[in-house]
Amino acid sequence: MKMQEYVLRTNQLSKTYKGHRALDKVNLSIRKGSIYGFIGQNGAGKSTLIRLVTGLAFPTKGSIELFGASEEKALIQARKRIGSIIESPALFPHMTASENLEANRILRGIPGKECVPRMLEQVGLQGTGKKITKNFSLGMKQRLGLAIALLGDPEFLILDEPTNGLDPMGVVEMRELLKQLNRELGMTILISSHILSELHLMASHYGIIHRGQLLEQFTAAELDGKCQQYIYIKVSDPGKAAAVIQNELGTTDFEVMQDGAIKLYGHMEQPSKISSVLFTAGLEIEKFTPMGEDLESYFSKRIGVDSHV
């Protein structure tokens, strides 16, 4: 694999804060053009890694390679190609949305003021006029933060919890915008989010971090393979159905849930046989649907806890 195909690679990246290992020998790689969903519980090390990549903190050990650059000066230069929202949108509270964008435009040396109204329109903030950002809702601040991050069409966008505070429509709009930017501009995107269902709808690659260690990286296609498929069955008598499945299908690879529903693993290619067996046994079938585990359940299983990303 050529070096240029990766936008970001870390090598044995470690960060220690007062004896606490926030990151431990992380080898993460993000391919150009991908949407990378970065998953981990609070305090797992997501923000620490992002802070190291964006130059807000310095590694205790290991190295970072951005756009193929790993030497200090080249790395600083490479950061000009990044747009980011880190932890929360950084805004001047007494400036308007336009003024915030203008300050960031000057900071990054982006020529021409025309990008300011264009970015405001892109995130739906064109009507905010003289309202200062101190009086913005959290959702509006997130949108403005995204507009700032997108100034100058960066090649690599890093978003730490970008959907925080957005209403459901805002979440959908942001997802569509990010997918559009990825599709049309080939923008590489790193998103850390607690909303795994949302990540599942857009990420092409994933990385799971837990207690400072990168447990696993995989593609969306690989995730589909990892997520176990099952048939969700709801019948009038779950106990009898369990016995029928065991005796007639000769399998114990199923679970009876608390609500009486049955998750039957495997046998995905035999739905008519299963329904026929249940029907013949005199069971009334209320629901019979092929389903698969999602990212959230896979993540929970992978880190060995029930929930709470």
């Binding site: 230069q77 950061r79 880190i86 950084a90």
Partner: peptide, 14 residues
């Protein structure tokens, strides 16, 4: 406190 320093520090300048 406003986080602006993060934007500045990650802007690709020394």
């Amino acid at each position: 406190s406003t986080g602006i320093m993060k934007t500045i520090a990650s802007s690709g300048n020394t």
